[in-house]
């Protein structure tokens, strides 16, 4: 990744440490806070935000899973360059972060994968040194949803609003989504987009966003990197959870206080999960006043890393510049 961004991780981590963390409200209490309004009367979501504090996506499985004998996990210097925390960054303030899980439905707190999908996930996790099994994030493919709103150290948000739309900007890999609020329909199902197609509406003071039309080459769940105290193969991070392209995500953004937006996502993919499932956590924390989104040139600095990780000469590939 771009060397500018190594420093950026430190900046973001320091900002997280500096921001006074409000105690997170218990799940289900969101929505009691009355947010300020824009001049045209919508709840005002605009501003800059940092990701919410890390908490485990799901309850640990405790099923004794371990990588298969002889599996090549891509461990070594290249692997650890991605997954080692920045040694200069202060630790995230864990004390005030809930321990999780984020998943509130099903009650087990586990991602309800179909059995074949769990097997496939284990296969992927055992072959992280192969380009086709590598986390698409590492290849600079889109995060999709809800992943773009799950906590990582290199993503921040800016929300821009106007009558009839909400525009969400993601520092991570310079993604953005323009969310019309005009009840317009999703496009032709043949149209596939890495971040999907989002349409929104207000439910009281909650912004509800419905997203479909995803490509199928992303891992839509999962933290950007495993937490410090979990190995890369831990299944509590959401790592290795794929989708079929039938992914359908409904998100709810609700202010719980002046500086905190609760993020809830219901995720559905009948080919991969046994049921729709829901996660919820305080996903957006208002950033300090001088925060700005920096350019995140993901792919530009990534060629050598990919080549080291996978042994493929990625840097030799060329595409047409224009038609």
């Amino acid at each position: 990744m771009n060397t500018v961004h190594v420093g950026r991780i430190a900046v973001v981590a320091m900002s997280l440490a500096a921001v006074t963390m409000t105690p997170s409200t218990a799940a289900g209490q969101g929505g009691a806070f009355e947010p300020p309004r824009t001049t045209w009367g919508d709840p005002d979501l605009s501003g800059h935000y940092l990701p919410g504090p890390y908490q485990a996506l799901e309850t640990p499985a405790n099923d004794g899973w371990a990588p298969p004998e002889g599996a090549n996990l891509g461990q070594g210097a290249a692997f650890s360059r991605f997954f080692e925390p920045d040694p200069d960054a202060p630790a995230q303030p864990r004390a005030s972060a809930p321990s999780g899980p984020m998943i509130i439905d099903p009650a087990s707190g586990r991602v309800p994968l179909q059995p074949w999908a769990t097997e496939q996930r284990n296969e992927i996790m055992a072959r992280q040194n192969q380009l086709e099994h590598l986390d698409p994030r590492v290849r600079c493919l889109p995060a999709a949803f809800p992943r773009a709103h799950l906590p990582v150290g290199y993503n921040t948000y800016q929300i821009v609003q106007g009558p009839g739309y909400v525009l969400m900007l993601y520092e991570w890999n310079h993604h953005s989504r323009y969310i019309p609020l005009d009840a317009s329909p999703h496009p032709d199902p043949a149209i596939k987009l890495g971040m999907g197609d989002s349409r929104g509406h207000w439910d009281g003071t909650t912004l509800v966003v419905d997203t479909t039309n995803f490509t199928d080459n992303t891992w839509p769940v999962g933290h950007g990197a495993p937490p410090d105290d979990a190995p890369g193969t831990a299944l509590t991070t959401g790592h290795g959870i794929f989708h079929s392209g039938q992914l359908h995500v409904v998100e709810r953004f609700t202010f719980v206080d002046a500086d905190t937006i609760q993020y809830e996502a219901t995720i559905e993919d009948p080919d991969v999960f046994t049921q729709p499932w829901t996660l919820r956590y305080n996903g957006l924390q208002r950033a300090p006043d001088d925060h700005m989104l920096f350019e995140y040139a993901c792919h530009e600095g990534n060629g050598r890393n990919l080549s080291l990780l996978t042994g493929t000469d990625v840097e030799a590939a060329r595409v047409h510049p224009i038609r």
Binding site: K192, L193, G194, T215, T312, A316, A317, R318, V319
Partner: peptide, 19 residues
């Protein structure tokens, strides 16, 4: 979408050096 990173990786699997 014009996610040329995806196209570039696709080019890798088809031929050496891509397009």
């Amino acid at each position: 979408d014009y996610d040329c990173v995806d196209h570039l990786l696709g080019a890798l699997s088809q031929s050496e050096g891509g397009a």
